[in-house]
Nucleic acid binder design. Structure first.
Lengths: 122, 122
DNA sequence: AATCGAATTTGAAATGATTACAAATTTAGA
DNA sequence: TCTAAATTTGTAATCATTTCAAATTCGATT
């Protein structure tokens, strides 16, 4: 499936629309609904993960390993970061008798690149 | 403001609708828009934080201290958890030259109570 | 307590991402 | 080629959130 290929080759944490827009020229009959359905399927099967970092839009990550994210509020880019060790531990601990299946960790701020741009214009 | 009082006395991480429904009887003229506006104001001023754990609905927390959350997928309740120390450190570290202003950490799974209910019916 | 401008609140309509669903198309096996 | 099943499509619904202009409330001043 072209959607999976896109996820595997692009590490931009794309939204449904980004994927749709990117694949549309190559697959002119592609519908947005299919992209939604396919991604939903991947998430259910554990082949992709859904990120709800931006409250407006869900985006997707083909890398299902446990890792954290960093959203730059200036440019909107999402970067990968290692998950903090203690966050990982929780997965095994089943804290307080609760069964924990997912760990989500993300940061927000301004990325290096945008900070450098700031400096140049000052 | 009644909205702030609700946030300060209820630790259920309420959605806009929960707040609106709860306050509506006491303030019959209250409109949902006002609840939206008020919460937006609080978040901007740092008096409350917005949680985007559930992709369907935003919810709000009057406790703005750095802490993690745990969403039970069975009953939908959101519990507070301490934030892992290493996650907190990142706030000061400004990782890799990026300026980090927010740390979000949450877990999903099934809470103790729901697990116990499972055992009873088996 | 009447007036007036500013600030807040209201409610209806718009927005926009996501979902539902039925019709159309494609697929694969015989 | 035929046919049933599976997938895809596109339109219409859904639903949380936002916009916005009109209505209301507030507060200071007389």
């Amino acid at each position: 499936m072209a959607v999976m290929e896109y996820l595997m080759t692009h590490f931009t944490h794309p939204s449904v629309d980004e994927i749709y827009t990117a694949l549309s020229p190559k697959y002119p009959t592609l519908s947005r609904t299919t992209v939604y359905n396919t991604l939903k399927l991947f998430v259910e099967q554990g082949a992709a993960q859904m990120l709800t970092i931006d409250e407006k839009m869900t985006c997707f990550d083909g890398d299902v390993s446990h890792h954290a994210h960093f959203l730059c509020k200036r440019c909107g880019k999402i970067y990968d970061l290692p998950l903090s060790d203690s966050a990982k531990e929780v997965l095994r601990m089943d804290m307080d008798g609760n069964a924990i299946t997912e760990v989500h960790q993300y940061y927000k701020g301004v990325c290096k690149k945008c900070l450098e741009k700031d400096n140049m214009t000052n």
